[in-house]
């Protein structure tokens, strides 16, 4: 019974925060509500026995991506007029699209006979993830470092201020 209650609490946190992110008219509220959604997902990772992913989620998503996002919000919006900063247009088409896609996917989830092994007890995952990164996934791992380098240089080049003589 315990895991079920934990799951519903974390799911509620994630879904309510995600709803605020999606529907709030204030971009600052949206950005801060994303914190709750990411934390809820991090808790779900723990429930699924992924301890390393939990800490990665906290470090990179909440500590990195979210902070960068909030920086961008602060740099681009006049804080004074945030109340109209996050207008939504085409609400009805967006709701219809999301609703239709959601209905189809929900039907697919419910009516599929998923392979459903009995999960073993949660064990530490870091050893095996490191093993996988230096074994079968070594090429994607190396390419990932190239992608990150390209992103780093690209971000600097795109956002720098040009000084013309």
């Amino acid at each position: 019974m315990g895991p079920l209650i934990t799951f519903y609490a974390l799911a509620l946190l994630a879904i309510v925060s995600a709803a605020i992110t999606a529907f709030s008219r204030n971009i600052v509220h949206s950005a801060f509500a994303l914190f709750g959604a990411l934390a809820g997902v991090a808790g779900i990772y723990v429930l699924l026995g992924a301890d390393f992913l939990f800490i990665i989620q906290i470090f990179i998503y909440i500590g990195g991506i979210l902070v960068v996002t909030i920086f961008a919000v602060m740099l681009t919006q006049g804080i004074a007029d945030v109340n109209v900063s996050n207008r939504a247009v085409g609400v009805l088409p967006a709701l219809v699209t999301a609703g239709v896609a959601g209905g189809v996917m929900f039907y697919a989830i419910i009516h599929s006979s998923w392979y459903h092994a009995r999960p073993g007890s949660a064990t530490p995952t870091t050893y095996w993830i490191g093993d996988a990164f230096l074994g079968p996934y070594v090429l994607p791992f190396e390419v990932a470092s190239l992608v990150l380098l390209a992103a780093l240089i690209g971000a600097i080049v795109i956002s720098r201020q040009e000084v013309r003589e």
Binding site: A18, T69, R87, G90, A94, T97, G102
Partner: peptide
């Protein structure tokens, strides 16, 4: 699925570019 749909709505309906990135 629920998180995906909320994110999809966010991407489709937002006019603020940062809002789209949040989605």
């Amino acid at each position: 699925l629920i998180l995906f749909l909320l994110g999809g709505y966010c991407v489709l309906a937002r006019r603020n570019a940062i809002g789209i990135l949040l989605g």
